[in-house]
Nucleic acid binder design. Structure first.
Lengths: 119, 119
DNA sequence: TTGCAATACCTTAAGGTTTGATGTATAAAC
DNA sequence: GTTTATACATCAAACCTTAAGGTATTGCAA
């Protein structure tokens, strides 16, 4: 396996969705988010800082997140909170995810639209 | 929204998963698959031929699919079926999808691992 | 029979995203 | 006083879907 897979299956857009979801419940800073995602998914999902930070910057630029600097014990933290725009985005994004997830699951179970349950 | 989104959220790897899933139930040719995916998902998921064909070629090269040429009414078709290797891949891929889907859903619902249901 | 639509296959450039590595700097631990 | 953990940040690489275009056949309508 010399191939480095940089675009793992099923994860496109997932970091952004989780970030918005987690920050809605509680403002957090980047480093904290990385671990919050891991905990929240019981270790199933792990995104590096190189993935999280660019997204935070982008979401802030799009005014979906609001950043505020805090200094705790001499350590500077950038805490992010979700704006009202961000909440709308989250709602739409979560709905999109669920729609796709349902469609995929339906296909996996062999739902061919006209083929009613056989059991 | 002048941005062309070429990498839509949540769809990475989904075409391959659906292709394997659908071809397990019934061999099909590329063009047929494109529509089968649309029908199977009630129009929720639509992948163009430019997406499907490269995947079919790759899966065949990896011996996950077996191709056979058929000529129906002067029209040449390449029918694809899933090999035993392909079935194993499907099993693993579907399991991976479900694991991720469950993790995402858990986070969306605010499952913070230690925070039991409040309701 | 000419033209158009649908079928069926295929290729290509473009764009966005996660990964993994790397870099800086401070606080706490040993 | 050196290492570890925290905290932020950037970059090249690799990958996948999209949109658009190209070829060729069949069937139907005008």
């Amino acid at each position: 396996m010399t191939t480095k897979r940089t675009n793992p299956d099923f994860l496109n857009g997932v970091p952004e969705l989780l970030i918005l979801s987690l920050l809605t419940r509680r403002p957090m800073y980047g480093y904290e988010l990385v671990q919050a995602i891991r905990r929240s998914t019981d270790g199933t999902l792990e995104f590096g800082e190189g993935c999280i930070y660019p997204i935070l910057h982008r979401l802030e630029a799009d005014k979906l997140l609001r950043a505020s600097r805090e200094t705790v014990g001499g350590r500077s933290r950038v805490v992010y909170g979700v704006t009202s725009r961000g909440e709308k985005r989250l709602a739409g994004s979560a709905a999109g995810w669920r729609k796709i997830a349902a469609a995929v699951e339906q296909t996996l179970q062999g739902g061919e639209h006209g083929e009613a349950a056989l059991a």
